[in-house]
């Protein structure tokens, strides 16, 4: 069960029919969650994920307690396990956890028994972003089998891993642009997707541009995505933050760019995260 008592940790084995029912939920009105309190535990920088979760929760009537990593006793040598066990005694209804350590959200769920929403764990996963992205495409056409090409460093991208797991389950046609690196080739082999030359992305319905994860040691192997990479029919996405002029040229960053889905992704992040919170709270109490 992808959204269950443990929260949402991964998009692995998200059955397509459940995905559909979840997306229909996104479009429905939600329960008032007044009285529920969540803890936002962001150990890595975040604008979109943290604030959209905060706002989504507030709109549901939830309250938040924000954990500031720099103020925790971790600095004094306390372990992450002890830290989260301490926090769990203050009875949060859920944790939203982002950390550079892969599988920390899984561990927090195991250690505390409190539902956890994985808001990004190392290079492993970012399941809620994947739900937003897939919802964005589903909303455009819920019947379509998309062909999508990743553009950028897939190997270090948790967004790519989470999206791929869903898209493979949906039997969508996923490929990645050859950036000349071994990591990209290995990633493609590991996940059974095609490596295509840059010009090949013109065939794709959607180009998914990934941020170069400088903080995780990746560097720019491709020149920025530009208008010349797009065919007339193609759309492009980016989970943000966009490093302008490096991930993509400024010409693509216009809010009104007719082929950009970035604005849609941002717009959908709030209702999708509201629905996630609602579902997690509902299932935790079930």
């Amino acid at each position: 069960m992808p959204i269950g008592r443990a929260g949402i940790l991964s998009t692995e084995s998200f059955p397509p029919h459940e995905l559909n029912s979840f997306f229909r939920l996104v479009e429905k009105p939600r329960t008032n969650r007044k009285g529920s309190i969540g803890m936002l535990c962001f150990f890595e920088a975040s604008t979109r994920t943290e604030l959209s979760f905060e706002m989504a929760g507030l709109r549901l009537g939830m309250a938040w307690s924000k954990v500031e990593p720099s103020g925790l006793s971790l600095q004094k040598g306390e372990s992450l396990r002890d830290t989260f066990q301490v926090l769990s005694h203050y009875k949060p209804d859920l944790f939203v956890v982002r950390h550079s350590v892969a599988y920390l959200p899984h561990a927090v769920s195991e250690w505390t028994g409190v539902p956890v929403i994985n808001a990004g764990d190392g290079i492993n996963e970012h399941p809620t972003q994947a739900l937003i992205d897939t919802f964005t495409l589903w909303k455009m056409n819920s019947k379509k089998r998309y062909s999508i090409a990743f553009f950028g460093d897939v190997f270090r991208s948790r967004v790519a891993r989470s999206n791929l797991k869903i898209w493979k389950a949906l039997n969508w046609n996923v490929s990645v642009v050859d950036d000349g690196s071994e990591n990209t080739k290995n990633f493609a082999k590991a996940f059974g997707i095609r490596v295509i030359p840059r010009r090949g992305i013109r065939e794709a319905d959607v180009i998914y541009c990934l941020r170069v994860q400088a903080e995780r040691g990746s560097s720019y192997a491709l020149s920025p995505l530009s208008n010349s990479d797009l065919s007339k029919k193609s759309k492009f996405m980016h989970a943000g933050p966009v490093v302008m002029g490096k991930d993509m040229l400024l010409e693509l960053c216009e809010r009104a760019h007719p082929q950009s889905l970035i604005h849609e992704q941002l717009k959908n992040s709030l209702p999708v995260r509201e629905a996630i919170l609602d579902e997690v709270l509902k299932r935790a109490r079930a």
């Binding site: 190392g122 290995n186 082999k189 590991a190």
Partner: peptide
């Protein structure tokens, strides 16, 4: 390996 890559572990 492909395993480490799939599991999201360096």
């Amino acid at each position: 390996s492909h395993t480490s890559c799939r599991l999201g572990i360096e």
